[in-house]
Amino acid sequence: MPLARWCILLLLACCPGLAAAEGMASLTGVPGDAARGRAIVVTRQRGLCLLCHSGPFPEERFQGDLAPSLAGAGSRLTEAGLRLRLVDGKRLNPATIMPSYYRTEGLVRVGPAWQGKTVLTAEEIEDVVAFLLTLRD
């Protein structure tokens, strides 16, 4: 039903807040693996999350304080909302310092090793989302 779809698009365009509620559908159609997701979140080279965030990771000595704690992220946000923030949080807050983990356009002077590549793969995004959903208050 094209009319209903147009209405939704119009609503989304008018109220960016709704996009947050809306979030984003799975990138792979396959549920992610929370254990792999945790490993990605705590690695400096892959996830980079703890450069900015802290969280319930008592074994990790160096955690950042540039961003809210990841503790309780799974209670505060829906699966779709978490995914949207990982894929491209700039759609919600263009000024955010959080990198867009699944975006390649609109970037400046990307190093040759990273050109055309997303920070995480679609599978990795789903793994991280699955893990964040387990972080409940």
């Binding site: 950042g64 310092i97 970037l107 590549k117 920070v119």
Partner: peptide
């Protein structure tokens, strides 16, 4: 803003100076 992580010098050194990036 530059690079795959899309950050500017100012975002770290003006907006977040004094905070901790990892350790």
């Amino acid at each position: 803003r530059r690079g795959q992580l899309d950050l500017s010098c100012a975002q770290c050194h003006d907006d977040n100076a004094g905070r901790r990036l990892g350790g």
